[in-house]
Design a protein around this nucleic acid. Structure first.
Length: 514
RNA sequence: GGCGAGGUAGCUCAGUUGGUUAGAGCACAGGACUCAUAAGCCUGGGGUCGGCGGUUCGACUCCGCCCCUCGCUACCA
């Protein structure tokens, strides 16, 4: 019995700055998987949100002369707005400042305390006030009698601060054992190797509280401490399911999470600390953590000083949302860093969306309009050429599911766009404009083409929901009830029904001279 | 420094256990067609598969050395 429930999450974003391409990418990727699973009949819970505690937020709020909570309300909203702008199908949006989250974190804390995994001690280290960071012994050097950071050159001082610790050191073998038994817990494989070598290098206990600032969730029974970042932030994945209420419908249905989509920069926290916390609290760890790469602009990390920032909102304004979504899914090799540039986006939109898929829809609809009275043809008879192209969908349903289960996003898109290439070739080879004396053949070619549009559009729904829906509406189909399985049916479009062309799907981008 | 990944056409990448002329898409050039967003289809150019050496009848594929790029190497997230 396969449980047809699917819980997928994005990272919760730290709202100290406005959303950038990396946020958009994580969210879009997660949305594609969420939509695909729904299309395949799963009950999906798709979570995103904001991580709002910590010193940086407290400071930023101070600078704006605002209460931290009010400050967060404003910034968090820009991320909530982003979910609309990106057309995310998220079922929930969690904020770490919410009551349900505080409740969950404090419960988890008490649980860890009761199991003796948390103890009070002192955090000691070289701290740089200007860098807001602790440095290890070997990152420190001496200059003019003062200790400085090798990296930043800023002065460091020896600091001792009372702190609660989590006994991470006890989990080295348990984690290695867990990775062994769950060989695809961490993907892609290259990242998994990094994590394993990190854990093999030995684990120290983890400081999980701070006294030096107050904007956070209080440690139960000790108001002087707030619970520090990861134990707070990661727990959002549980609190959205109403943990600690184990009997809650959401928790029972959706935990353990199927997939945490994250950027490679926060892999360790998700792949080491998170399962350790959960194992310590007798909660099953998630099934999978996928650490994707970064989106680079001109092969470089985007930064203000380089002036190479590509703002997702601006890209959406210039090219359209589905266009950006398609580019990110198709052209960025999932798991690796990927490049984005106006030129590449324009090429991709034109060749795949406008000239290929979009134009195939248009040529088919226009032809049916003129030669089939705008109706879905009825007098049809498939021959082997027709069945060959139609079967290229039904024969591959298993493969399609497996690709998405392994997060092989690029291969999934490649599979679909190949069908679109084949469709254009089919249309060319069959040349319905030469079949005006053989109405039955002409009708069949058009019917097959319409079926191909339906199948391709269904497969594209997760990636470009608006555009694919538009194509399906042109076929007068109730898109709400369409399921992945229907791709295997070759006779789903109702003969004699009226076609309702919604118009050009993707405008061609005129190339600019840059 | 240590551990790991990778260097294949202008660009992004595929290349299964070593086997005949190294593939795809984009970009570029030519051809026939005309239903379509001058889109689509067909054909083509272009690569000493990072370098050197070795094993083998035969290596992009195995081994050794070297060069280059990137990631990880704990409490900013």
């Amino acid at each position: 019995m396969d449980k047809k429930n699917y819980y997928i999450t994005t990272p919760i974003y730290y709202p100290s700055a406005k959303p950038h391409m990396g946020h958009a990418y994580s969210s879009i990727v997660a949305d594609v998987f969420a939509r695909f699973k729904r299309l395949d009949g799963y009950k999906v819970y798709f979570l995103t949100g904001t991580d709002e505690h910590g010193l940086k937020i407290q400071k930023a709020a101070d600078e704006n002369r605002q209460e931290p909570k009010l400050f967060c309300d404003i910034i968090s909203k820009t991320f909530r707005d982003l979910t609309k702008i990106l057309n995310l199908s998220n079922d929930d949006f969690i904020r770490t400042t919410e009551k349900r989250h505080h409740k969950a974190v404090q419960f988890l804390w008490n649980k860890l305390v009761s199991k003796k995994y948390i103890y009070l001690s002192k955090y000691r280290g070289w701290y740089s006030v200007s860098d807001e960071a602790y440095y290890h012994e070997n990152e420190i050097t001496e200059k003019d009698g003062k200790k400085i950071s090798i990296n930043s050159g800023s002065i460091v001082e020896w600091v001792e601060e009372e702190s609660y610790f989590f006994k991470l050191s006890l989990f080295q073998d348990k984690l290695l054992n867990f990775y062994e038994k769950n060989s695809d817990f961490i993907l892609p494989i290259s990242r998994k190797n990094e994590v394993i070598s990190f854990v093999k290098g030995g684990l120290k206990d983890l400081s999980v509280s701070r006294k030096s600032f107050s904007w956070g969730i209080k440690v139960p029974d000790n108001d002087e401490h707030v619970i520090y970042v990861w134990l707070d932030a990661l727990t959002n994945y549980l609190s959205a399911l109403n943990y600690p209420n184990y009997e809650d419908v959401l928790f029972k249905k959706f935990w353990p999470a199927n997939l945490h989509i994250i950027g490679k920069d926060i892999l360790r926290f998700h792949a080491v600390y998170w399962p350790a916390f959960l194992l310590a609290a007798d909660i099953l760890p998630p099934n999978r953590v996928y650490g994707h790469g970064w989106i680079l602009s001109d092969e470089k990390k985007m930064s203000k000083s380089k002036g190479n920032i590509l703002d997702p909102l601006e890209m959406i304004n210039n090219y359209g949302l589905d266009q950006l979504r398609y580019y990110l899914i198709k052209e960025v090799s999932f798991g690796n860093d990927g490049n984005i540039s106006n030129k590449n986006v324009e090429n991709c939109i034109n060749s795949d969306l406008a000239n290929n898929y979009g134009n195939f829809c248009q040529r088919t609809f226009a032809f049916a309009e003129k030669n089939c009275k705008g109706l879905v043809p009825s007098d049809i008879d498939f021959i082997s050429k027709d069945l060959k192209i139609l079967n290229s969908f039904s024969d591959n349903i298993k493969k399609i599911r497996s690709l998405m289960d392994k997060q092989q996003l690029n291969d999934y898109v490649k599979f679909i766009i190949e069908r679109s290439f084949e469709a254009n070739k089919y249309f060319n080879d069959e040349a319905p404009w030469n079949k005006k004396t053989d109405i039955k053949r002409l009708n069949t070619i058009i019917y097959v083409s319409l079926e191909i549009i339906r199948k391709i559009s269904i497969l594209l729904l997760p990636i470009i929901p608006d555009s694919a829906n538009k194509a399906l509406r042109s076929l007068n189909l109730d898109t709400k009830n369409l399921k992945l399985d229907s791709v295997s049916n070759h006779l789903l479009i109702k003969s004699g029904s009226k076609l309702n062309n919604q118009g050009i799907l993707f405008k061609k981008i005129k190339k600019r001279n840059d």
